[in-house]
Design a protein around this nucleic acid. Structure first.
Length: 339
DNA sequence: TAGGCCATCTGGTCCT
DNA sequence: AGGACCAGATGGCCTA
């Protein structure tokens, strides 16, 4: 697909007067167009005519300062320079995408099959960072509901569903008090204001992004495209309150995420035994039957690991842990287990 | 078919 | 001069 720079340069040398193969399948025609344009100029230069040749009748007359004469050598240099620049730009974007892919793996809800878009990855990462910072800052573990709400702030409805599914939460549970204008209740009293709060919520839009679904927690957004699904172990907690009003559920958007979100995807898709050993684990325990069907707040010593405990192991990244990351993980682990 | 997402090309700007 | 970065344009692919 992508030809190397060397190939491109070779082609320039060998195909001087021929149509150049495009460095990529997609941009090929454009490049050829520009090269043809150059060749037109070349004809002008080489030929007796100035700018007004036959083609000049059809093409709008070029304005502005007259361009330098394009000698063959100059054209060649331009071609080579342009192709080198294109190759660099491709590499640069690939690097950017690689970094983004790395971010996808760190952020909750990683799935190879259901990739978050770039913009959603960035938003989720931002929310994730903020939520973790808030945990570290306050030294308290939020209830999972708030945590997920914070994660989903400003995300599109499909991503919200995905995140909720990843964390074994029924998105319906965001519904009760959550309106587009209400802040998440992750921060305890006196906590720092969620940085994305203002830009995301009041308008229902993410700043600078025109698409309506962004930035809202509207039930219609959350519940859109969710149909009948035996969901999570938590589901029973919410059924009594919300089922009558909410549409049924779709399965999680990304199949590998059905158990423990990206943690399961880690286990199923990317984990080696060593990786798994390295993976960090902390648990959020749900006490069953919170008041009014609301999930109980996290309590450090969930008594029934089967029905009440929600494993969130792997909320941190699961591969390539640096020492620092593991230290952070340990801290978080302590927070989630001690608070 | 429209809209979202993406990869790529391209020209401009800034910096070394 | 050349590289990095950026934003606009373009076209392909996919999905609702």
């Amino acid at each position: 697909m992508t030809r190397s720079l060397q190939d491109e340069q070779e082609s320039v040398e060998s195909e001087e007067q021929q149509e150049l193969h495009s460095p990529s399948e997609e941009g090929g025609e454009e490049e050829e167009d520009s090269l043809h344009h150059l060749e037109d100029e070349e004809e002008d230069d080489d030929g007796e005519e100035e700018e007004e040749d036959e083609d000049g009748e059809n093409k709008p007359k070029r304005r502005g300062p007259k361009k330098k004469k394009m000698t063959k050598a100059r054209i060649q240099r331009f071609k080579v320079r342009r192709m080198k620049a294109n190759a660099r730009e491709r590499n640069r974007m690939h690097g950017l995408n690689d970094a983004l892919e790395g971010l996808r793996k760190i952020v909750p809800c990683y799935s190879k099959t259901q990739k978050l878009s770039k913009i959603e990855t960035l938003r989720l990462a931002k929310n994730y960072i903020w939520a973790l910072s808030e945990i570290l800052r306050s030294g308290k573990a939020p209830d999972l509901m708030s945590f997920v709400q914070a994660l989903c702030k400003g995300l599109s409805q499909p991503t919200t569903n995905l995140v909720a599914g990843c964390l074994q939460l029924n998105p319906r549970t965001f519904l009760p008090e959550q309106t587009p204008d209400l802040p998440v209740h992750l921060p305890p009293a006196g906590a720092a204001t969620y940085p994305g709060h203002y830009s995301y919520q009041s308008s229902g839009l993410t700043a600078g992004l025109p698409s309506p679904p962004y930035g809202t927690m509207e039930p219609s957004h959350i519940f859109h495209q969710v149909k009948g699904q035996p969901y999570s172990p938590l589901e029973p907690f919410f059924d009594g309150v919300l089922v009558s009003e909410a549409p049924a559920f779709d399965p999680p958007l990304s199949p590998p995420l059905s158990i423990n979100g990206n943690f399961s995807s880690f286990k199923h898709e990317t984990a080696t035994a060593a990786d798994y050993d390295k993976s960090f684990s902390f648990s959020v325990h749900y006490g069953g039957g919170g008041a009014g069907g609301h999930p109980a707040l996290y309590n450090g010593g969930g008594s029934n690991p089967r029905c009440g405990e929600l494993q969130v192991d792997g909320l941190m990244g699961f591969d390539g842990h640096s020492h620092h990351e593991r230290m952070m993980n340990a801290q978080l682990n302590a927070i989630f287990h001690d608070s």
